[in-house]
Computed example of a mutant assay.
Amino acid sequence: MDKYEVSLTGAQWRKSTKSGNNGGCVEFAQVGAFVAIRDSRNPEREPLIFDANEWDCFLDGAGKGEFPVPTA
């Protein structure tokens, strides 16, 4: 199965421990060998789905500060 065939039916979404009280939360769910992430304010929107290698690369880049905070 590839990430485009993942069913999120029954996924158990959890909020990031880094989420604040301002409603801007990221939620994630482990779905088999994949990780899905979504915006908790818009749960009906399609989430991003990562395979194991993509998730590891994302976490590595985030830890190194490769994703700067956008400015308005």
Results as ranks from 00 to 15, higher is better:
residue 1 M to E: 15
residue 62 A to W: 08
residue 2 D to N: 12
residue 35 V to D: 00
residue 59 L to I: 11
residue 50 F to C: 01
residue 45 R to A: 08
residue 70 P to D: 07
residue 36 A to Y: 01
residue 27 E to V: 05
residue 25 C to A: 04
residue 16 S to I: 11
residue 41 R to A: 13
residue 27 E to F: 05
residue 1 M to K: 11
residue 4 Y to R: 15
residue 51 D to R: 01
residue 29 A to Y: 02
residue 40 S to R: 00
residue 2 D to G: 07
residue 30 Q to D: 15
residue 65 G to C: 03
residue 55 W to Q: 10
residue 68 P to S: 04
residue 14 R to Y: 02
residue 72 A to G: 12
residue 18 K to R: 11
residue 56 D to C: 14
residue 61 G to T: 10
residue 51 D to Y: 01
residue 72 A to M: 14
residue 28 F to P: 01
residue 61 G to I: 07
residue 15 K to M: 05
residue 61 G to S: 10
residue 61 G to C: 09
residue 61 G to K: 10
residue 61 G to M: 11
residue 34 F to L: 08
residue 26 V to L: 11
residue 44 E to V: 14
residue 65 G to S: 08
residue 39 D to S: 03
residue 36 A to L: 04
residue 4 Y to C: 10
residue 28 F to G: 02
residue 49 I to L: 10
residue 40 S to P: 03
residue 19 S to T: 00
residue 20 G to P: 00
residue 23 G to K: 07
residue 31 V to H: 08
residue 50 F to Q: 02
residue 58 F to C: 01
residue 20 G to M: 01
residue 40 S to D: 02
residue 18 K to P: 00
residue 60 D to E: 13
residue 48 L to W: 11
residue 66 E to N: 15
residue 2 D to S: 13
residue 3 K to H: 06
residue 1 M to H: 14
residue 13 W to R: 03
residue 21 N to E: 11
residue 14 R to M: 15
residue 63 G to K: 07
residue 44 E to A: 10
residue 68 P to K: 00
residue 7 S to T: 09
residue 14 R to E: 09
residue 2 D to M: 15
residue 20 G to L: 09
residue 2 D to A: 10
residue 48 L to E: 12
residue 47 P to N: 07
residue 66 E to G: 14
residue 44 E to M: 09
residue 28 F to V: 06
residue 41 R to P: 10
residue 29 A to Q: 01
residue 29 A to E: 02
residue 5 E to Y: 15
residue 54 E to D: 09
residue 13 W to T: 02
residue 4 Y to A: 11
residue 11 A to E: 04
residue 65 G to T: 02
residue 9 T to Q: 11
residue 39 D to V: 04
residue 43 P to A: 09
residue 39 D to R: 03
residue 58 F to W: 05
residue 51 D to L: 01
residue 26 V to N: 05
residue 25 C to F: 00
residue 6 V to C: 02
residue 50 F to N: 00
residue 4 Y to L: 08
residue 44 E to H: 14
residue 70 P to C: 06
residue 35 V to K: 00
residue 20 G to H: 08
residue 13 W to P: 00
residue 24 G to Q: 13
residue 18 K to E: 10
residue 65 G to V: 05
residue 41 R to W: 14
residue 36 A to K: 02
residue 46 E to Y: 10
residue 14 R to L: 09
residue 31 V to I: 09
residue 54 E to H: 08
residue 66 E to H: 14
residue 54 E to Y: 03
residue 35 V to Q: 03
residue 52 A to I: 09
residue 37 I to V: 15
residue 16 S to W: 03
residue 56 D to S: 13
residue 11 A to V: 06
residue 36 A to R: 02
residue 48 L to I: 15
residue 26 V to P: 00
residue 22 N to C: 08
residue 63 G to N: 06
residue 48 L to H: 05
residue 22 N to S: 13
residue 26 V to A: 05
residue 34 F to N: 02
residue 8 L to A: 03
residue 48 L to R: 04
residue 8 L to I: 05
residue 47 P to C: 12
residue 2 D to Q: 12
residue 36 A to Q: 03
residue 27 E to M: 01
residue 68 P to V: 11
residue 67 F to I: 14
residue 35 V to A: 06
residue 59 L to N: 13
residue 59 L to W: 07
residue 5 E to P: 12
residue 2 D to E: 07
residue 70 P to L: 06
residue 12 Q to R: 13
residue 13 W to M: 04
residue 68 P to G: 13
residue 72 A to C: 11
residue 33 A to N: 15
